[in-house]
Computed example of a mutant assay.
Amino acid sequence: MKKWLGLVILSCLLILASCSSNDNNNKVIKNNTKGDKEKVTIVPQDDSKDYQAIHSKTPSQTRGYIGYGVTNRKDIDEMEMGLMTLSKEHFNPDKYVFQEGRYLSEDEINGMLQRKSKKNPDGLNPPYGKGSNIQEKAMNSPKELSYVLEQDYLVKESDNKYKLGGVSLAISFNSVYHDKVMDSKGQTYDVDKPLDPNKVKANAKNYAQKVVQRVRQNKDLKNVPIFVTLYLEASPDSLTPGYFFNKAYVSQGSSDIGGWNTVNQKYVLFPSSNANDKYKEDAQSFDKFKSDVQSYFNNYIGITGEGYYKDNELSNLTFNINLKFYDKTEIVGFTQYVASLLQNKFPFDRSIPVQIYIKSNQQPEAVIVKNPDMDKPFVHVYHQ
């Protein structure tokens, strides 16, 4: 499922769930490993390749907690949606339904993310290093592990009962150690230290083994299969997200991660030196499209692109166009012009899904979507 449509569909499913929670035909009884029962709603998938979602009136206790460890919104979205996509390899949507993580508590997650110390001997991040002050001590021993994201996949036990069938984890790591540390006097200091990505990724497997062992200590997660993924975050101010780089499957009841498999995917920003150096043809295509877009107005039009590469092949394109408009007719005319470029003069391969977001002073004005199976782009102009 394409990234943009996946985000839209998930949002629609959640809205549908809240609207249909009083529909008795959708209510089921979910069994959890604690033995208690809860009435929930099963939200049907929009596409047969996607998961049905479980909606509960009781939110997960870790709802929104990911922001504690992952600061870039791009990374949060990619971790959540990317983990769901990767999970399909082991938890088939034909058999499993999706539920946000409900078994690991904030205390359990936070206990893993903390530095190892006398106060927190079970912390997985390293203790403070040497230094004359707390800032130096933090810089000399940076945190690598940033978050542990849980997703649950349930299977139908009978006509109206579901039970936990598997758990997926996205274990994320810093590419930049960005933190605030406090000394004994209550004074805070900012820490920003770029990390060697190769070193972080080499250490990640050891962290992951410890995370799985810790997860197995949760009595509700002792015996279910666990799908583990490793994710390297982008820098906090990056316009593109980081990427998954390894995955592994831990069998039911096991605490040992056997072999790892490589996940070959990444996001590339256009324009950028990275795109010019490593993806020259695509960078030239972006420049051509940008020039065609900017020819519509004499004044400056800001445009950036984000390319998603899977197994070194461009698999998805997203463009953000920002321009100051003075009236609605300008927005409509410009949107129609960009849609015509996408239909008739687009320099990229037409088999690549494309999403274009048009903004004015950072406020959304229009969206254009073109997938390979569409004869014409989908165009929507917002009416505010």
Rank of each mutant, 00 (worst) to 15 (best):
Lys2Thr: 15
Lys3Thr: 10
Leu5Gly: 02
Leu10Pro: 00
Cys12Phe: 06
Asn24Gln: 13
Asn25Cys: 01
Asn26Gly: 01
Val28Gly: 04
Val28Tyr: 06
Asn31Pro: 01
Gly35Leu: 03
Gly35Ser: 07
Asp36His: 09
Glu38Ile: 15
Val40Phe: 04
Val43His: 03
Pro44Trp: 15
Asp50Lys: 02
Ser56Ala: 09
Lys57Ala: 09
Gly64Met: 06
Gly67Ile: 08
Gly69Leu: 09
Asn72Ala: 11
Asn72Ser: 09
Arg73His: 11
Lys74Trp: 14
Asp75Phe: 05
Met79Ala: 02
Gly82Lys: 12
Thr85Ser: 14
Ser87Gln: 08
Glu89Gln: 13
Arg102Pro: 01
Ser105Cys: 04
Asp107Met: 00
Gly111Gln: 12
Leu113Asn: 04
Gln114Asn: 10
Lys116Tyr: 09
Ser117His: 03
Lys118His: 06
Pro121Ile: 13
Leu124Ile: 11
Lys130Asn: 14
Lys130Asp: 13
Ala138Leu: 07
Asn140Glu: 15
Ser141Cys: 10
Glu144Ile: 15
Glu144Arg: 15
Val148Asp: 11
Asp152Leu: 12
Tyr153His: 11
Leu154Cys: 07
Val155Gly: 14
Asp159Phe: 06
Asn160Asp: 15
Lys163Gly: 10
Gly165Asp: 02
Gly166Glu: 07
Ser168Pro: 12
Ile171Trp: 10
Ser172Phe: 11
Ser172Met: 08
Tyr177Asn: 05
Tyr177Met: 08
Lys180Ile: 14
Met182His: 00
Met182Lys: 04
Lys185Ala: 11
Gly186Asn: 06
Gln187Val: 13
Thr188Ile: 10
Asp192Tyr: 14
Pro194Ile: 13
Leu195Asn: 01
Asn198Glu: 10
Lys201Ser: 09
Asn203Pro: 03
Ala204Cys: 09
Ala208Asp: 05
Gln209Phe: 07
Arg216His: 05
Asn218Tyr: 07
Asn218Gly: 11
Leu221Met: 07
Lys222Leu: 01
Lys222Thr: 13
Ile226Trp: 02
Ile226Glu: 02
Leu232Lys: 01
Ala234Asn: 06
Pro241Trp: 07
Gly242Asn: 03
Gly242Arg: 01
Phe244Ala: 02
Lys247Asp: 15
Tyr249Pro: 05
Tyr249His: 05
Val250Lys: 01
Gly253Ala: 06
Gly259Lys: 06
Trp260Thr: 03
Asn264Met: 12
Tyr267Ala: 01
Pro271Gly: 05
Ser273Phe: 13
Gln284Thr: 08
Asp287Val: 09
Ser291Thr: 13
Asp292Ile: 00
Asn298Gly: 06
Tyr300Pro: 12
Lys310Val: 15
Leu314Lys: 00
Ser315Ile: 14
Leu317Tyr: 04
Phe319Asp: 03
Lys324Ile: 15
Phe325Gln: 02
Tyr326Glu: 02
Val332Trp: 00
Leu342Ile: 13
Asn344Ser: 12
Pro353Arg: 00
Tyr357Pro: 00
Ile358Leu: 08
Ser360Met: 09
Pro364Gln: 04
Val369Asn: 05
Val369Thr: 08
Asp375Lys: 11
Pro377Leu: 07
Phe378Thr: 03
His380Arg: 07
